[in-house]
């Protein structure tokens, strides 16, 4: 039971990151390997703000998330929008370069050791035979709520409808006179914001470090590949699944290999169903 809870708590972080990435990938069609960096920044910044500038916790978290959103907009406007006529190959390379740039800078700024953001609620519940820190419940509820909110946004608001159209047929969307770059930036902002939210909450419950971005981005990709690239709820489910796989693997086989289980699972999925588990037909 404890394993299930552990798995769900970590898993919902992956879900949030994955859902954000699904949005970015469907609307902008950029393989954004740098997706883990806003998450990392929102995880690392609050502690610095709190210790060096005396910023209270809630504000520090909000600033961290705002920084993540700003990074997303920056990626869109300053980097990917300018490279829209370049081959997909180049976009992949560019996003890798961004990962290296940002994480190296982060290590120089914050060092490489793990840390945690203090100040979260530290009540631990004893439910159904497992110890559940209340922070984990906060994370799970937030993940669910934000996915519901995003789903509503996509299906019931004007900007959401426009982004759906862009994902379905980018060519036609341009011809409608839709200012495509603006919505790219919006997709990046929302997606990175979700990643930032995940990072900020994660840092309250678990240890984080400057180099966590790459592995997390890879896990987010694992999640969206599970989900077949286009499905928000598929990504949500995929994140939970990944979390559970890792948790059970760490518990029953070996905790050092925690990350490995997800990667092995990914390889297994890719090799069996190269298009992903929840793959839908979309206009490629």
């Amino acid at each position: 039971m404890q394993d299930i809870v552990n798995g769900l708590a970590q898993g919902t972080i992956y879900s949030m990151a994955g859902v954000g990435l699904v949005l970015i990938f469907s609307v902008v069609r950029v393989p954004n390997f740098a997706h883990g960096e806003p998450l990392m920044v929102a995880a690392m910044l609050p502690l610095t703000l709190m210790t060096f500038y005396g910023v209270p916790l809630p504000l520090a978290l909000l600033i961290g998330i705002a920084a993540a959103i700003a990074m997303g907009v920056f990626f869109s406007a300053a980097v990917f929008a300018r490279l829209s006529r370049y081959p997909e190959v180049a976009l992949l390379i560019v996003s890798l370069a961004l990962v290296v740039l940002i994480s190296s800078a982060a290590v120089m700024l914050w060092g490489d050791s793990p840390r945690q953001t203090p100040g979260g609620p530290d009540i631990i519940l004893d439910l159904l035979g497992a110890r559940i820190p209340i922070m984990w419940l906060v994370i799970m509820v937030t993940a669910l709520a934000s996915t519901v909110a995003l789903d509503f946004f996509i299906s019931h608001t004007s900007p959401g409808r426009i982004m759906r159209a862009m994902a379905l047929n980018p060519f036609a969307a341009q011809l409608m006179g839709i200012p495509v770059k603006r919505y790219h930036a919006l997709a990046f902002a929302i997606g990175s914001g979700l990643a930032g939210l995940a990072g900020a909450l994660f840092s309250l419950a678990f240890a984080v470090q400057s180099t966590m971005g790459a592995a997390l981005a890879l896990k987010a990709f694992i999640v969206i590949i599970f989900a077949g690239m286009g499905s928000i709820w598929g990504a949500f489910a995929g994140g939970l699944l990944l979390g559970l796989v890792e948790s059970f693997g760490a518990s029953y086989i070996s905790s050092g290999y925690r990350d490995t289980f997800g990667f092995v699972f990914l390889l297994a999925v890719l090799l069996i169903r190269p298009a992903g588990l929840f793959a839908r037909k979309t206009n490629a």
């Binding site: 409808r161 426009i162 759906r164 159209a165 379905l168 047929n169 060519f171 036609a172 969307a173 011809l175 409608m176 839709i178 206009n283």
Partner: peptide, 15 residues
């Protein structure tokens, strides 16, 4: 080049 999966009304709305 219509938007598949979206309704006629939604396609027109986007236009």
């Amino acid at each position: 080049q219509v938007f598949p999966g979206l309704s006629v009304a939604e396609n027109l709305w986007l236009g």
